[in-house]
Amino acid sequence: MRFVRRHILTVAAFIVLVYLFIPVAVVGVLSFNDPPSKYNTKWYGFSLDAWTNMCGIPGVCESFVESIKIGLISTFVATVLGTMVAFALVRYRFRGRKTTNLLIFLPMATPEVVMGSSLLALFLNMTFPLGTTTVIIAHIMFTISFVVVAVKARLQGLDPSLEEASRDLYADSRATFQHVTFPLVAPGIAGAALLGFALSFDDFIISFFNAGTLVTFPIYVWGAAQRGIPVQVNALATLVFLVALAIVLIAQFVAWRRRKALQADMASRDADLKALSMDALSRS
């Protein structure tokens, strides 16, 4: 009983982790499957076919590349625009600032179905041809909000006297931005960009409404699911997961190394101090 009470938190945490990662694990395991038909739902036998021949099924890789492309372009534009909006909202007092602050949240709160369908209506009314452009426009629209929120938080946490100190130390506004503001806000911008890319890459609903004949990766998967998902999709999905995991692990590793270096530094200083005081003691 005591054992349970003492370890209940660990057990609960473990169960939650299992719950979170079983689907990913299933997808990963099935990417090594060798199904005789299109239905890749139970284990038949081990095969590396999907991994060695990822683009073996027509359309998979095209849609994957398309999604990466859309993700990169919309993330880039949204990050630039969103960062500028965040700076304007934090740094300047202007008419309509409060309203803008509020409106920025709107795309995040709007159901995707509503946003996707209303965008579609807009494009159709304008007789704008659906395709990569419309999807990119849509993605920029909803990623901007997330970028603004992330960068704004970072900017608000920035001590204004840092920029004043920079101006005081002979840096004009450009040099101040380059050497002080940007390096300090950059982690926030990078985080915002990663989030933006993830949102764009993964978006199905809004893309589906506005894609026309264009097939993004999520749209491909959805379409394939109607007829049985090819193993290649599992392999690609696992690959994406592994890349994301690698990014997180590298970030963790860098942070850990930095901490380690700092501790070593402190330890050596303590050792120096100890040596000094010993020296002083022996002399007295």
């Binding site: 001590d159 840092l162 100190a165 101006r167």
Partner: peptide, 20 residues
């Protein structure tokens, strides 16, 4: 003169050292 052109320097209350 703008701040960055003045032959004057400041020690700020919060020190305002560049953390990066």
């Amino acid at each position: 003169l703008r701040a960055f052109k003045r032959p004057v320097n400041t020690v700020f209350q919060s020190y305002a050292l560049f953390p990066h």
